[in-house]
């Protein structure tokens, strides 16, 4: 299974993602943002980090980079695209995903493990996953998901909410919401569910020495679903 990770100036989770993808059996290539073409891939990943120093708005400059048109074409033709953290912000800035990631409600950079309840129906990312409550890691300043009421309704009606912040038992409540995200939203799909953007980092939870291995469950399951 071929994957590609796009590197922007200021990406900093690109190599972690590369290590994670390879560990679980993907043949991964790294792609520079200034390239025109994507290598033949079944999965494109926009990694976390601070592309262009978060100038203007997080992800806004990366969202206009040269490679992005190829990513948009790939996504529109049904290809699987995963955006983590800054990658999620970039996906909203390109318009591939609805809404926007605003500054955290408490104006603090949040770096900690959290739990998410994932949506495991009718999508390649989470269906058949062994656990639907995963312990993952977040590290962001702008993770407060926001969209209009109409957009929220259509996300809910089309089952496009991919992950909710919750407690360790899977209860979605205000206490488990780290950043003020509307409805505890940690990640969303596009309408066809071939694009996933989420704030939590599965690539940071792939080894016991990294405080947990629920990220491994995600990658193993993703690969299985793609085969």
């Amino acid at each position: 299974m071929n994957s590609s990770v796009i590197i922007f100036p200021g990406s900093n989770c690109d190599r972690d993602m590369d290590v994670a993808l390879k560990k679980f059996g993907f043949k991964n290539k790294m792609v520079w943002h200034d390239d025109d073409e994507l290598p033949n891939s079944e999965l494109i990943v926009l990694p976390g980090g601070f592309s262009y120093g978060d100038y203007l708005r997080c992800g806004s400059i990366a969202g206009k980079s040269k490679i992005i048109q190829s990513v948009i074409d790939f996504a529109n033709s049904g290809g699987l695209v995963l955006g983590i953290c800054n990658g999620f912000q970039i996906l909203t800035e390109t318009g591939l995903l609805k809404g926007v990631l605003q500054q955290n409600k408490n104006i603090e950079f949040i770096c900690k493990n959290i739990f998410v309840k994932v949506n495991n129906s009718e999508n390649k990312f989470f269906e058949n996953i062994d656990k639907d409550v995963l312990e993952l890691h977040i590290a962001h300043n702008e993770g407060n998901y926001f969209c209009t009421e109409d957009e929220l309704k259509s996300l809910e009606d089309n089952n496009q909410i991919a992950a909710y912040y919750c407690n360790s038992d899977g209860k979605i409540d205000e206490k488990s919401n780290p950043n003020g995200a509307i409805k505890n939203i940690a990640g969303i799909f596009n309408e066809k569910k071939n694009i996933l953007g989420m704030m939590p980092h599965p690539e940071r939870m792939i080894d016991q020495s990294l405080s947990g291995e629920d990220g491994s469950i995600f990658f193993e399951n993703l690969l299985k679903n793609l085969k």
């Binding site: 708005r57 806004s60 926007v100 605003q102 926001f146």
Partner: peptide, 8 residues
């Protein structure tokens, strides 16, 4: 196209 994100 760039300076404002008209969602917010």
């Amino acid at each position: 196209k760039l300076l404002a994100n008209q969602v917010i």
